Amino acid sequence: MSNLRLKIALQKKGRLSDDSIELLRRCGLKLLSSKSSLFYSAENYPIDLLLVRDDDIPTLIQDGICDLGIVGDNVLKEKTQVNLEFSSCFQTIMPLNFGRCRLSIAVPKDQEYQTIDFLQNKRIATSYPILLQQFLKQENITAQIVSISGSVEIAPGLNMADAIFDLVSTGRTLAENNLKELYVVLESQAVFFKSTSEFNSEKKKIYDVLLKRIQSVIKAQESKYILFHAPRDAISKIREILPGCESPTILPLEGSEDKVAVHVVSRESVFWNTLEKLQTVGASAILVLPVEKMMA
Rank of each mutant, 00 (worst) to 15 (best):
L210G: 08
G282T: 04
D54R: 09
I206S: 10
N177Y: 14
E198A: 15
K224H: 14
T249G: 06
I57L: 10
D55N: 15
D19C: 08
M160N: 00
Q144T: 10
S197M: 12
Q111E: 10
D48V: 03
P156C: 12
E22Y: 11
D166R: 14
T249R: 09
L31S: 06
V71C: 15
M295R: 12
L211G: 00
N44P: 06
V264F: 02
I116T: 09
G99Y: 04
P243Q: 10
S88A: 12
L51S: 08
I226C: 00
L96S: 05
Y183V: 00
V291G: 02
E240W: 10
S197A: 15
I65F: 13
F192Y: 12
V168F: 05
S33P: 08
F135Q: 03
R102N: 10
T196F: 08
R267L: 05
L24T: 01
D258M: 10
S149T: 09
F118G: 05
V217S: 06
R123D: 00
N178W: 08
L4D: 15
S195Q: 03
Q11K: 14
T80G: 09
N159G: 04
E240Y: 13
Y40K: 07
E153L: 04
G171E: 04
I235A: 07
C27S: 10
S195N: 13
Y113R: 03
L251G: 01
N159F: 13
F271N: 12
L60Y: 14
D233P: 02
L278H: 05
K12L: 07
Q111L: 10
L186D: 01
T142F: 11
Q133L: 02
A220T: 00
S223G: 07
K180F: 06
L6Y: 03
N177A: 09
D54Y: 04
I286E: 05
L158M: 13
E198G: 08
K205E: 13
L38W: 04
S151D: 14
Q133P: 01
G69C: 05
C245W: 03
K219G: 14
A230K: 02
F193C: 06
P95T: 08
K277S: 13
T92P: 04
S266K: 03
E112R: 13
K109W: 01
S197T: 13
C66H: 01
M294G: 02
D54T: 05
E22R: 15
Q279W: 06
L76T: 01
D48P: 01
V71H: 04
Y113H: 09
P129A: 14
I214Y: 08
D258K: 15
P252V: 08
I214W: 04
L31W: 08
N273P: 06
L31P: 01
F193T: 04
A285M: 03
L103S: 11
H229E: 12
Q133E: 11
N83A: 14
K137D: 06
Q279I: 08
S236I: 02
T92N: 12
V288K: 08
K277W: 01
V146M: 12
A125I: 02
E85S: 15
